[in-house]
Design a binder for these strands. Structure first.
Lengths: 90, 90
DNA sequence: CTAAAATAGGGTAATTTGGGTT
DNA sequence: AATGTCCAAATTACCCTATTTT
């Protein structure tokens, strides 16, 4: 199977998500999506990861009620569930 | 381990980075990547170096926005006068 | 030796980056 | 906190033809 190790440009990812390329850059800077840098500093994204984000996340996670408590967290799972890494200092 | 001393053509390197072959040539001209010239003037790149550039910067990285030591690489080509690039990004 | 593909080199648009702001 | 827009600079992409490689 083609895992899709092809690389996509920021503009392509932005078109897939219907967002501004700048937003994709912010996602990469925040660690929400993996990125590969060219020697010149431009970013490339793995198609497999992008497609996983596109159609593989709206099924078994944050369904509707208990997916992501935005304020009334049980305080027992500090787990990174929604925010894996980064400190969002951008 | 396969050190990967095989030589890659500009087209191969370009496909790996998802860039234009001309861009790879520009990297070599700027000293960002080591290059070997054929007697005819064409360039060849070491697979080990290319893979180091690919994996060394975009694999287990998540928040890599600020602080990008791009010039701390192998210094294989000191690049005589090809330095209009780094040093002062902005 | 001939032919096709790739590369080098130069020059000009398009994209991307990073910061600051809305 | 997240996204979109403006700006200046850098990087990259596509145009061409000549040379090299296969």
């Amino acid at each position: 199977m083609d895992t899709g190790d092809r690389l996509l440009t920021p503009g392509e990812v932005a078109a897939l998500f219907r967002v501004d390329p700048k937003t994709v850059t912010r996602w990469a800077a925040a660690g929400r999506i993996g990125s590969i840098r060219t020697p010149g500093g431009h970013r490339r994204f793995r198609e497999s990861e992008v497609r996983a984000l596109l159609e593989g996340e709206g099924m078994l996670e944050e369904s509707d009620d208990m997916g992501r408590p935005r304020n009334a967290g049980p305080a027992t799972s500090p787990g990174p569930g929604a925010g894996p890494a980064n400190a969002g200092m951008y």
